[in-house]
Design a protein around this nucleic acid. Structure first.
Lengths: 141, 141
DNA sequence: CTTGATATTGACAATCATTTTCAACTACAT
DNA sequence: ATGTAGTTGAAAATGATTGTCAATATCAAG
């Protein structure tokens, strides 16, 4: 967590941006939640301890956190972005339950490998990928 | 194409909905474009031949086309939905170029198989999945 | 072919997520 | 301490999509 803060500060410096109290607050609260938060989720969490921070700032800061390499955008097809931690977390894909919304993080190295092959076979230089398997989880069946 | 029209009509009947000229027009133009169209793309295409159709109708009709099983929603993370043909098209995944926006449809049965195994290993009953590999295509490198 | 119940339409307003604008404010190098 | 340049919150703007509603069209029944 202090490591993440340091990375963020360093990213801001390097980009000629400023380390403000609002940015620190948003980052801290983001780091405390181990969920896939939307900007609005995070805004609600932030509001609990600090009524002064506007939602535009939360959006702006999430972009920065992502740019700093501390978060990844995920999209469960809801029409809004969600963010998850990236630092100290290995890449993974998601199983998303269509009933209860629960997500399970999964990883299959064989799939990852095959995906890379598939892309390079088409001359593609991969930046990243997105795999979501949607269905009904065990407890919802 | 006539097959698709028939499926659509049958779907409307079965659902107690009406076969209107607007719906026929939107469907026809959708079937003519072999692209991943957004509602607004399609609205522009429709407007070329028929100025009378509103954008709300295009949105509504795309939903119906999807419900009829003739289209699939795809999401390239642009904050809007795109639709692609489903009838007579096998399932596939996408390579999306981040520079020119071009998409290549790909399929690897081994990946599909592994995905199914991965999900069932977690007790998941799969409804569908979404795989997009984002990167830079050959000609944009 | 007329009718009538019901679905549909387009225009417009509303909504939701996100971004922009802008004047007041703050960080931080000097 | 100070000036410059980035930052903030509030409010307005944007873009995609959906809801409202009065006028209109569909289609089964007579």
């Amino acid at each position: 967590m202090n490591k993440e803060r340091e990375i963020f500060i360093r990213f801001l410096e390097k980009s000629g941006l400023k380390a403000t109290a609002q940015r620190a607050t948003v980052l801290d609260i983001f780091l405390k939640t181990e969920k896939h938060v939307s900007a609005d989720d995070l805004f609600s969490l932030v509001k609990k301890t600090n009524t002064e921070i506007g939602h535009a700032t939360v959006h702006r800061t999430l972009k920065l956190i992502k740019a700093a390499g501390l978060a990844r955008e995920v999209d469960f097809g809801e029409g809004k972005k969600r963010y998850e931690h990236l630092f100290g977390h290995k890449h993974h894909d998601h199983l998303v339950c269509l009933k209860c919304g629960k997500t399970i993080e999964v990883l299959d190295p064989k799939i990852e490998k095959l995906q890379a092959n598939l892309a390079s076979g088409h001359g593609f230089k991969v930046s990243h990928h997105r795999l979501e398997i949607l269905g009904i989880c065990k407890s919802c069946q």
